[in-house]
């Protein structure tokens, strides 16, 4: 009796210690974000006096409007939106179609494609950046939005293709046969029968690619070097910091504009994202 009481007391203490530890960890992990959002609402005077606090004394929107209107963040935001939406669309169409053909049919050349894609998995794309830039230049697309979109859509997308192929290979044959009976051709079966079934994979693909493209830096940095008007947010903020090194409230406002949309999307769709990246190590 006495013994079981002390055990339960021990477990409630250890539970408390666990929560205190986790709250401390979460504070360390959240502080930079809280500081960023708070600083974007502080006046210069408040930032100078109380630069580290994470609760602004009042909600002063002047930094946000300054970043949005005078520092071109409205343009950067629009650019990021266009680039991200286009890349996601291109990647979604190309990977789902490729995964469907590879996962569901046997056709001449299939093995070669598999071997090529899988063996490319560990070849680092980052060190191919020079030929990619040279290719975009050769296509006459340097310093254009289309060039940025194309370069960011590039690659074999092995993970996504394998995810789609794995999913489509598990759908029972009858689904297809009944669609063929109803007079659906290859493309219509894919669009009207198969794609709607693959909603979870589409969800993971969209959210992973949105976050990946929204945050990309190296390719747009190089491809927009001489055309600032097509910069996305990450490159725009880097340039802004370079020109206004002491304007921390402005930098914080720009960072908040850049980061918040992804965080909001993530909060709503994190299930798909977590499933997607877990699949990468399980497979």
């Amino acid at each position: 009796m006495n013994n079981s009481l002390s055990v339960s007391r021990f477990s409630s203490i250890s539970r408390l210690v666990t929560h205190i530890f986790l709250i401390g960890i979460c504070f360390i992990w959240m502080y930079p974000f809280l500081w960023m959002v708070a600083s974007s609402f502080k006046s210069d005077a408040e930032f100078f006096e109380n630069g580290l606090s994470i609760i602004p004394s009042s909600f002063n929107f002047s930094n946000i409007t300054r970043a949005w209107e005078t520092a071109n963040f409205s343009q950067y935001f629009l650019n990021t939106l266009i680039i991200t939406a286009s890349v996601v669309l291109i990647v979604l169409i190309s990977t789902s179609a490729c995964g469907y053909a590879l996962g569901r049919f046997s056709f001449p050349g299939k093995k070669v494609i598999y071997v090529l894609l899988v063996s490319s998995m560990f070849i680092p794309l980052e060190f191919s950046i020079i030929p990619i830039v040279a290719l975009i230049n050769a296509l006459g697309l340097s310093n254009t939005m289309i060039g940025v979109i194309l370069a960011e859509s590039g690659g074999g997308h092995v993970m996504l293709v394998l995810m789609f192929a794995g999913f489509f290979s598990q759908i029972p044959k009858e689904m297809e046969e009944s669609a063929t009976m109803d007079g659906c051709g290859f493309i219509r079966t894919f669009i009207h029968v198969m794609l709607p079934l693959s909603k979870p994979i589409i969800g993971s693909t969209i959210i992973m690619q949105v976050i990946f493209t929204w945050n990309s830096f190296l390719i747009p940095l190089i491809l927009t070097l001489s055309n600032p008007s097509i910069r996305p947010l990450s490159v725009g903020l880097y340039a802004f910091q370079g020109e206004n090194i002491v304007d921390w409230t402005g930098i914080a406002a720009g960072a908040t504009i850049s980061v918040l949309p992804v965080i909001i999307i993530f909060f709503f769709l994190q299930k798909y994202f977590v499933e997607g990246i877990s699949g990468a190590v399980k497979g």
Partner: peptide
């Protein structure tokens, strides 16, 4: 049709991954 379906992804792969190497 299978070839048509793998084509877009393979073009992106060849242009931006294989050719750069």
């Amino acid at each position: 049709w299978c070839w048509m379906f793998v084509l877009p992804n393979m073009i992106l792969f060849i242009l931006f991954q294989l050719w750069p190497i």
